[in-house]
Design a protein around this nucleic acid. Structure first.
Lengths: 112, 112
DNA sequence: TGATTTCATCGTTCATCGACGATAGACGAT
DNA sequence: ATCGTCTATCGTCGATGAACGATGAAATCA
């Protein structure tokens, strides 16, 4: 094992995949959304809006980005929508980051 | 403990901090740079350039972003420059992501 | 000294992001 | 049927990102 990959279901996520998911995580509002969605709670858009001090359209955009990154699952439900964390996907990202760190810290070198 | 924080050295990184570091990680070229810097090797800019198929100025920019995010340390050395991974910082990011995932997966909920 | 190498920075160009208001569709309630 | 609510999407605007070439500074080599 040399690169940060392996693990997960056997499909090694490409650098692009990981970068894409990390990009989805790289905005404060989206991190807060994830925290709000945490604990298995499923939220509708309005619930997030009330908590976030952003326009509804903006929140909807952020949610879309999270869904397209595969980190949040989406289910249109009558009037409301349900957004829910995809725990497996999130865990996979965490594993990717861990693997990256491990591979980077393998051979100890002298500090600068 | 309610938010994904705590852990680390006792200073809880803010959502903005984490987002900023994740943003630095959210580009394929920068992930590849980190892998190249992995294993304690310290690289000069040219070495990265030769490996990456990007213009020298572009690579320099990416390195700067990594340095400003605190993930890579920088030491101007005579003619060349030395870039080296900041393993502690990288580990901290990994821990933040893990903590986020854990806090999000706490209370199991029904799947969508 | 002069030529070459290595690097950072500047200026430019194009694309994307982030935020908003406005709008339209779908649903529930009256 | 009509009204109000909840969403997603569109269009816009300013800001930022990503890439490049050109340039200049510092160090090394001839």
């Amino acid at each position: 094992m040399k690169s940060f990959s392996a693990r997960q279901n056997c499909r090694a996520p490409s650098v692009e995949d990981v970068a894409h998911k990390l990009a989805a995580l790289s905005h404060p509002a989206r991190l807060e959304i994830l925290q709000r969605l945490g604990g298995g709670r499923s939220c509708c858009c309005k619930e997030v809006v009330e908590h976030l001090d952003l326009a509804q359209s903006t929140v909807s955009q952020h949610l879309k980005i999270l869904v397209e990154a595969g980190l949040v699952r989406y289910a249109p439900e009558r009037q409301r929508s349900r957004y829910q964390i995809d725990q497996a996907a999130l865990a996979a990202v965490s594993a990717s980051v861990s693997a990256l760190v491990e591979s980077c810290c393998a051979g100890e070198g002298a500090d600068i």
